[in-house]
Amino acid sequence: MRWPPAPHPHITLADLPRSSVDAGEGPVLGMGDNTVPAYLGPGAGHVLLVAWPGTGSTTGLRTLAAQYARRGTQVEILDVSGQHAWARAQQRVHLYGDAASVHRRLYQLAAQVRAGRPGPARTVLVESGQTVTSLLRFRHYPDPGGTGLNALTTVLAAGRLHGIRVVMACRAVPEPWGHLARDLFTTRLLAAPTPRTWELAGWPGAPAPQKEPFRVGRMHLVDSGGDQLLQLLRLTDLQAAHLAATPPVSPRRRRRPYGRLVVTAPTASAFQIPRMQGDRRT
């Protein structure tokens, strides 16, 4: 089987209709092969993004974080590796940048969930690499359930009842979860999934997809609607920071017809920010 080529090597704001970022009920994930934007709906649960470094995991987290902040949701980024420096000056984004603060925050959220205490709607993003490794190894308590991954599992199990959505990136599905990945995460984004990854997080009963040419940001979106290929929306650090601080387009403006976006003008809006030297491409 030969997969169809991606419509674009990268999907940026310039490739979308101007109103599309605010048109859906949730953030834009990217664009499918049918050139239609794919959205993360409000009813979607937690999101798992399985991708090796360099395949777009950090870009996916950054793009979702900026859009959630733009929509007024409180955003918390757990990032030991320092990939999200763009979020440091954001009013709606709080960055936890060391193992101790990451674990302390997860224990606080787990305690909130266990006690059934309501709280503001929030999105918690967990960066891949060092952050996930610290969840497996770092301990605040000597008991067997004292790792950060145990606290995160508690948040995943019942956090949506308390307004908490988790978006987690990792290189592979953590072994302690095994086949629970489908139950914990209703939406999965898989970059060139291995047979093992597909077995744990792919579409149930469907054969693993054949290996296809590598493209940064090219992922399988697996949710209740099935499996589709899409190209993730890519925001640079500067675009994410500006988008997060800009209010959404009003419904009246949203109904106006727009052409394609232009990114060569000065930074008059969140949609007109050119890529600057030094922006991350992960």
Rank of each mutant, 00 (worst) to 15 (best):
M1R: 12
W3D: 15
P5L: 08
A6S: 13
T12Q: 09
A14Y: 00
D15E: 13
S20M: 11
G24R: 02
G30H: 00
G30Q: 00
G30I: 00
G32L: 01
T35E: 14
V36S: 04
Y39I: 04
G41N: 04
G41I: 06
G41F: 00
P42W: 04
H46E: 06
L48W: 04
L49K: 00
A51R: 11
G54N: 09
S57R: 13
S57K: 15
R62L: 05
T63H: 07
L64I: 08
L64H: 03
A65N: 08
Y68A: 05
T73Y: 12
T73H: 14
T73P: 02
Q74G: 15
V75C: 10
V75R: 05
I77V: 05
I77T: 00
G82A: 14
H84Y: 08
H84S: 04
A85D: 14
W86F: 08
W86R: 02
R88P: 02
R88H: 11
A89L: 15
A89H: 15
Q91S: 15
L95V: 13
Y96I: 02
D98W: 12
A99D: 10
A100W: 14
S101M: 15
S101V: 15
R105D: 14
R105F: 14
Y107L: 14
A111E: 15
A111C: 03
V113Q: 13
R114C: 03
G116Y: 10
G116N: 09
G119I: 13
P120M: 08
V124L: 10
G129D: 07
R137K: 12
R139H: 11
P142K: 07
G146K: 01
T147S: 14
T147I: 05
L152C: 01
T153K: 03
T153S: 07
T153P: 00
T153D: 03
T154C: 06
L156P: 01
A157Q: 11
R160C: 01
R160Y: 01
I164G: 03
I164E: 01
R165S: 07
V167Q: 04
M168C: 03
R171G: 11
V173A: 04
E175G: 09
P176D: 05
H179G: 08
A181T: 03
R182T: 07
F185R: 04
T187C: 08
R188G: 00
A191R: 00
A192Y: 07
A192P: 02
T194L: 11
P195V: 12
E199D: 14
G205W: 05
A206N: 06
P207N: 05
A208W: 10
K211W: 04
E212A: 14
F214P: 03
F214W: 12
V216L: 13
R218C: 02
M219A: 12
L221H: 02
G225F: 06
G225C: 07
D227W: 15
L229R: 14
L229M: 08
Q231L: 04
Q231S: 04
L232C: 07
L235S: 06
Q239N: 12
A241E: 13
A244D: 11
A244V: 08
A244P: 10
P247C: 08
P247M: 08
P248C: 07
S250F: 03
R260C: 08
R260E: 12
V263Q: 11
T264V: 13
A268D: 13
A268L: 15
A270C: 10
Q272Y: 12
Q272S: 15
R275C: 05
M276S: 14
R280H: 09
R281S: 02
T282V: 10
